[in-house]
Design a protein around this nucleic acid. Structure first.
Lengths: 344, 344
DNA sequence: CGCCGCCGTGAGAGCGCTTTCATCCACTCA
DNA sequence: TGAGTGGATGAAAGCGCTCTCACGGCGGCG
């Protein structure tokens, strides 16, 4: 069935020969066909079809100096980053958009600072055209690493203040938090508590800022610290009830902590939302919908953020050439949306 | 700081010139240095160091016809495959082993049968040296797809019976199940129930087979069907208690279902393990350790399975040349281990 | 002492592609 | 009618690397 000896795929040369044109023309057609007359172009396309020609990416990369691949860098200070449903959606968005652009996704798993060298070398080696990275912690060395490697990159989530200025895509954590708190205010709540996320994650910081934007004079005792886990949410809730038994609403920095809070409120016999209204953040469907009562929360388009990361990177790539033009890279903040369910 | 004009990385030519040798010799050193005399080799290595030389993979691929990359194919019939902690560990193992082999991980996300064409073309295009895939369902088209693309591949998990014969890595589901059940027998239990997983997943089938290996004459009423979710485990447990209120042990096909069963047993006032002993499968730490009582279960080395997939693929690649030699590919079954905790 | 063989090295071909540059043709305009 | 124009095409030069092959020098053996 193969026209060639087994193992050897047809080359552009073969296509050109079959179509009766030069390699140059065949190449032009394969790459869009600009400047080739219709009948010739058709002949070439036909030959491509018949031979089942697929361009050799290596040869192409060699001359264009573009790999057609993008690295997705996963730093994993914590254990369970990868299996975060969040992350999954984001990577899916990235994957889809990359596919739409005929680019490949190379997964780079950073196993800690000791691994930075390897990653830097790889990135610097021109194996990928750009990188997409996720920065979760303030002290993450990733932004610096990527800057050093001089690879065009886009971050998912706003890197910490200490980090180098890099373009990123994030959702409007602060604005979303404001919406959530305003919603509670609109419900007539007057003693609105906040369960904050880890102090070293920008998303948590921004959400807390949003809370304070609306309730700038809130009693500090109305804020408790959590770490984005359900248990920490429960602990924080317990603490809050002790400090301010009169609270009538809680805005938790994520759904998991909101679920923990809900558990404690139920155990203490506080009716939700009658006595205490609860709002979460993220709209993690599995958590928010199965919570009792179902959770009012702030939704973000996570897959969309992934796609946007790719688009932004694509733009940086086409603009800056090979990373030489380091103009002010525009970051993108995506809007959020309040999803009303039963808890508030 | 760069010795070249910005953007142009040093070539092997430059290294050779600096070391005062020919390109051929430089190449030999870079690729292991066999057949080059010590002093010369040292000079070359020095030049590499000084210039910060990194081989151009595209050029190398062009001549060696090897990409140095391996595709990891994720078919996602269900929604949440990727965020399965299981999967995460396996991919981590793969990533680590690939890194150790200086190979890259290209992530291919299959968006359903409509996407098969694209994947087949990609795989057939010689962009990767081999593929690692995960087959979860009996009717999965992936094995056939990969066979058609003629790419050396290794599967994670035994593909269904309908699938083409492909090498795979799996844990000893059947043997692990036997161990679990024998453990219950050893505890003196006489009416041991089984909560089975989905009928179309080979792992679930094998575990059920293991149960029957030991208890070949068990009452069919002692087996209930679940789907690997916690809720299904709870439902199955309820059913079992209705059918055989006298049961004194349960072997669930995974930890999640065991947790569901535990919940129901507690609600019904059955003491675990006194009245009913429970054993799970997988040793998903977050589930098994936080269950009340903590879960006795069967552990598998998931990361190890990932690494093994890579090793197996590497072997296939080095043996079979470019997939021409399609000898009987040996699959690997990894041992399991019973982890005793409180529930049995 | 001379020949053979082997090891270490360098010259150079060529992997498959893109892209410049020259060429050629069909027109248009003076 | 002939020079000028511009677009379509082909020839060929590499991109950076590996690897074959030829070559030269050296040691061992007859």
């Amino acid at each position: 069935m193969p026209e060639q000896s087994p193992g050897s795929r047809p080359t552009l040369e073969a296509v050109a020969a079959r179509a009766g044109v030069s390699r140059a023309t065949a190449s032009r057609v394969v790459n869009g066909g600009a400047g080739v007359r219709q009948p010739l172009a058709d002949k070439v396309r036909e030959a491509v079809e018949e031979l089942g020609y697929v361009p050799n990416q290596a040869a192409r990369s060699l001359v264009t100096r573009q790999s057609g691949a993008v690295a997705v860098i996963i730093a994993e200070p914590e254990f369970r980053i990868f299996s975060d449903p969040f992350f999954e959606q984001q990577v899916r968005g990235i994957s889809r958009e990359l596919t739409a652009n005929d680019a490949q996704l190379v997964l780079l798993w950073v196993e800690g600072p000791g691994d930075y060298d390897r990653i830097a070398r790889y990135l610097g080696g021109g194996h990928v055209d750009g990188a997409l990275a996720f920065s979760l912690h303030d002290d993450d060395g990733l932004p610096a690493l990527i800057r050093r490697a001089k690879v065009p990159a886009v971050f998912g989530g706003r890197p910490g203040a200490g980090a180098a200025a890099v373009p990123y895509v994030d959702c409007d954590n602060r604005g979303g938090a404001r919406t959530a708190v305003r919603h509670l205010v609109g419900l007539g709540r007057e003693r609105i508590a906040h369960i904050a996320g880890p102090r070293d994650q920008t998303s948590a910081i921004d959400r807390a800022d949003g809370y304070r934007d609306v309730l700038f004079d809130a009693d500090p005792a109305l804020t408790a610290q959590g770490d984005f886990t359900e248990d920490s949410g429960a602990r924080a809730m317990t603490e809050l009830l002790e400090r301010r038994p009169d609270l009538d609403a809680v805005f938790a920095a994520n759904d998991l902590m909101a679920a923990g809070a809900l558990r404690v409120l139920r155990a203490r016999g506080r009716r939700v939302p009658d006595q205490v209204a609860v709002v979460g953040f993220d709209d993690m469907v599995t958590v928010a919908e199965s919570a009792r009562p179902s959770l009012t929360t702030v939704r973000q388009d996570i897959e969309g953020m992934g796609r946007l990361m790719v688009r932004l990177l694509t733009r940086v790539l086409s603009e800056g050439g090979d990373g030489r033009h380091v103009g002010a890279p525009a970051s993108v903040i995506m809007p959020t949306e309040l999803v009303r369910r039963a808890s508030a």
